Amino acid sequence: MRKLCFGILLVLVFMSIGCSFRPGTHKPHLYRGDEKAAEAYIHSKGYLITSYRGELNTYTLQKSLLRETWCAQVWSVQSEPPENYFGREITTYGFVVEKHPLSKKLHLPTEVNIMVTDGRAIGGYSFPHSDQMTGAAYSLEGKELEELTGLTYTDWKDQWDEKYGDQADN
């Protein structure tokens, strides 16, 4: 009888925990390894995680990769230069967050992608969580390339190509 009562009580506890999360409420995720570093980095910025998108990609950073648009856009909004990480494996983890400057500015949830190498978060980037919006990545703090560099896109691109483009190898 005691085992039956304990079993019923246990089922009720699990049901109440499961029902306490309404749709749109973040359910805790058990982060492991590099995910923990990414989560801590997000929290250090003051953002609230509402969902976890998982591991998005892994690549070894090479100078030649910086010639690809996606990689140039991601690294253009980092506080450290990419050459600090040449030859290192970078893994990117995705999250949807609240309390982000883009959320306040655009009235949309914000996605942040955190880059991790050697168990340490090294940076990230953000963008609106919407299928209707396209464009380049924002910094992790929601700033555009022009705000970070003080350059127009054309001037920045010329400098980027000079440093990392095909001609830079000669």
Rank of each mutant, 00 (worst) to 15 (best):
Y47A: 00
E98L: 10
Q159G: 11
N84E: 14
G54V: 05
Y31P: 00
T110F: 03
G54Q: 05
G124N: 00
G119E: 06
P128I: 00
V116H: 01
L108H: 04
K163D: 04
L148R: 03
L145M: 10
R120H: 12
T117C: 07
V74Q: 06
G33T: 07
R88H: 12
C19Q: 12
L9K: 07
E144D: 11
D34I: 03
I8H: 07
K63Y: 10
Y31S: 07
K36P: 05
K36A: 08
Y47V: 01
K3S: 12
Q159Y: 11
G54A: 06
V74K: 04
Q159V: 08
L140I: 15
K63C: 11
V97W: 00
N84F: 13
Y52I: 05
R67C: 07
S76Y: 00
A137S: 15
V112L: 04
F21E: 09
I90A: 01
W156K: 03
A38K: 01
G135A: 07
M115Q: 05
L66C: 04
L151R: 03
G87M: 08
P23C: 05
T69P: 09
G124C: 01
F14Q: 10
R120N: 13
Q159I: 08
S20W: 11
V77G: 00
N57T: 14
V112H: 02
E147D: 13
G135P: 03
S139N: 02
K104V: 13
A121M: 03
G54F: 04
G119W: 02
H29P: 06
T60N: 13
T50L: 10
A40F: 14
Y85E: 06
E83A: 11
K99I: 12
L65T: 05
T149Q: 04
S76A: 15
Y93G: 02
A37M: 05
G33H: 09
K104C: 14
